[in-house]
Amino acid sequence: MYFEDEPNPGENLPILPGHVSAGRFERVLRAGQFAVTAEIAPPDSADPQEVYDRAEVFDGYVDAINATDGSGANCHMSSVAMCALLAHKGYSMIMQVSCRDRNRIAIQGDVLGASAMGVSNILCLSGDGVQSGDHPEAKPVFDLDCMSSLSMLKGMRDQKQFLSGRKLTKPPEVFLGAAANPFAPPFDYRPHRLAKKVAAGAQFVQTQYCFDIEMLENYMKKVVDMGLHEKVFILPGVGPLASARAAEWIRSNVAGVHIPDAIIKRLAGAENQKQEGINICTDMINAIKDMQGVHGVHIMAYRMEYAVAEIVEKSGVLGNRKPWYPTRDIA
């Protein structure tokens, strides 16, 4: 997808009327395109090349890349640094900001810095508990929650001030996102929680892994009934499972991931389980893409990042559209 006002890589796009950010991601969504995002695993390394290599596997297949912020409470390179490195190359980054490790002073500082370095999208999360990671003895911060963090960043952008009221000379022009989990109890409250996130400032939302179409349908039906799909761009999360054993492990060890028995059975019965995982993911996208109120899909292919290209290709969700990537315009 080409924009008329295509900038040099690493420079921001002009902000269009009715838009809040200088990024490609918001443009793709507001243009009514079916957006594809993917998640990049930050390296346990100080080498920028590792970051570039990890982003490159998505080239031409995704509209934006999520940089996780100590996901699963494990220590990795920070999301702000990953985003800065990749935004400089021209990638559209979604910086995940968890409330687990930083208080309001640190978060506001990071968001200003990230925006200065070309990050146009911020996703606010509460964050996994420290008990699930590699430093369970750490002190959890949780000064804010995802909701108060969203409204704080919205205030920075729209009121041009810190939470304290002190003025900013230039606000962070960021497209604000949130996470949703339609697959965890209390189910009938989940759409209301999304409404609350929209009220707090969420403009796009990515969900937890969907392996249960019926459950997502029920959720989306309520979301559409509440008219939320007209106020927020919704990208259900999907991802390939590596094997039946991996699926069993995720189901019992990763908080908030719901995998029905039928999926595990299908994986176990397959000759090539890894390929079957990719096939299931493609099937999920095909079932999701025409659901009312859905604006895209978020692919979390942890340790199977190479599969994203095949998944996007097979599902055909991009049509003839080729998302921007660093070498696209080099003939």
């Binding site: 409330c99 687990r100 509460s126 964050g127 996994d128 508990g129 699930s132 959890p140 949780f142 929650d145 995802c146 909701m147 108060s148 996470a179 949703a180 989990n181 965890a184 109890p185 209390p186 409250y189 209301h192 929680r193 609350k196 707090a200 937890q208 908080a255 908030g256 719901h258």
Partner: peptide, 19 residues
């Protein structure tokens, strides 16, 4: 444990217990 004041996080267990 996360002192969330605005609703349940995404980690709630299938049986409604805390993550």
């Amino acid at each position: 444990p996360k002192t969330i004041r605005n609703g349940p996080c995404g980690g709630v267990r299938p049986n409604g217990k805390c993550e």
